[in-house]
């Protein structure tokens, strides 16, 4: 089937790493099938439990290494919410912490060679972004009622411009989940695909040293991207949360 296109486009198979396949056997992928998605999400949960539950088991006054890492993440996310969403955003700390930790650990675990990056799938990031979008919109209407629509009515602009601005604001509001999910999924997918392409070059003896060096450099960059994307996802969630809590500009 792929025969005619085999010569040109499928040389490197850079996207094969994203295929969802069953762990046992080779049946079709149903909704409850144990797949590599299940495996790597379970490992994500395990890693989070190891760091945040087992690591803080001692409740030590002078923290161990794992405990101080957990405390650092806690303080970091707490301060981020407080700075951006305000004091009343602290109530939603566990939700944002869940999102942040899941994305962070999934991204980092996805960087292990031969692993499966769950956050590179638009289905996963789309659900995350939609959850944030729907949650924030519902919260905005519950907290502020109809005055939540003031978010789209830029009262500081001249009156003539306001309807046009309202349309732009409305569109940008509904584009939020799209960009929110594609930013994360696209970044992770792009990084992994680029590494795979360079790995394909490594098979050619003449340029394999350059290729290996390039993979090393890109791997370093990807570690940075993995952390920054988790941070960006969380910080944008905080910004949206702020809009829901204080819709006035």
């Amino acid at each position: 089937m792929a025969e005619p296109s085999a010569e040109g486009e499928l040389v490197f198979h850079p996207l094969d790493q994203f295929i969802v396949e069953p762990l046992f056997g080779d049946g079709p992928v149903r909704w409850f099938t144990l797949t590599n998605v299940t495996l790597w999400m379970a490992l994500t949960v395990l890693a989070i439990i190891l760091l945040l539950v087992v690591g803080t088991r001692g409740r030590a006054m002078i923290p161990s290494r794992a405990q101080s890492a957990a405390e650092m993440i806690y303080g970091f996310v707490y301060k981020m919410i407080e700075d951006i969403s305000g004091k009343d955003g602290i109530r939603y700390f566990p939700y944002i912490m869940t999102l942040f930790l899941f994305i962070l650990f999934a991204n980092v675990l996805g960087l292990i060679p031969t692993s499966f990056a769950t956050t590179s799938h638009i289905a996963v990031t789309g659900v995350l972004a939609l959850a944030v979008f729907i949650g924030v919109t519902v919260l905005g209407f519950v907290k502020n009622g109809a005055s939540f629509l003031g978010l789209f009515w830029v009262s500081s602009a001249p009156l003539v411009l306001r309807p046009a601005l309202a349309i732009i604001e409305l569109i940008s509001y509904f584009v939020r989940p799209v960009s929110h999910s594609i930013r994360l999924g696209g970044n992770i997918m792009a990084g992994h695909a680029v590494m795979k392409v360079f790995a394909g070059f490594a098979a050619i003896a003449a340029i394999s040293p350059i290729s290996v060096l390039a993979i090393t450099a890109i791997y370093g960059l990807e570690v940075l991207v993995a952390v920054i994307q988790a941070y960006v996802f969380a910080i944008l969630t905080c910004v949206y949360l702020k809009d829901a809590l204080h819709p006035a500009h």
């Binding site: 951006i84 960009s179 930013r183 696209g186 970044n187 792009a190 960006v232 910080i235 910004v239």
Partner: peptide
């Protein structure tokens, strides 16, 4: 710095769209 990362994220998202 938070604003820096938000701005970078917005700028980068459009590049990711092109890549997509």
């Amino acid at each position: 710095t938070a604003m820096l990362f938000i701005g970078m994220a917005f700028a980068e998202a459009l590049g990711i769209f092109a890549f997509l």
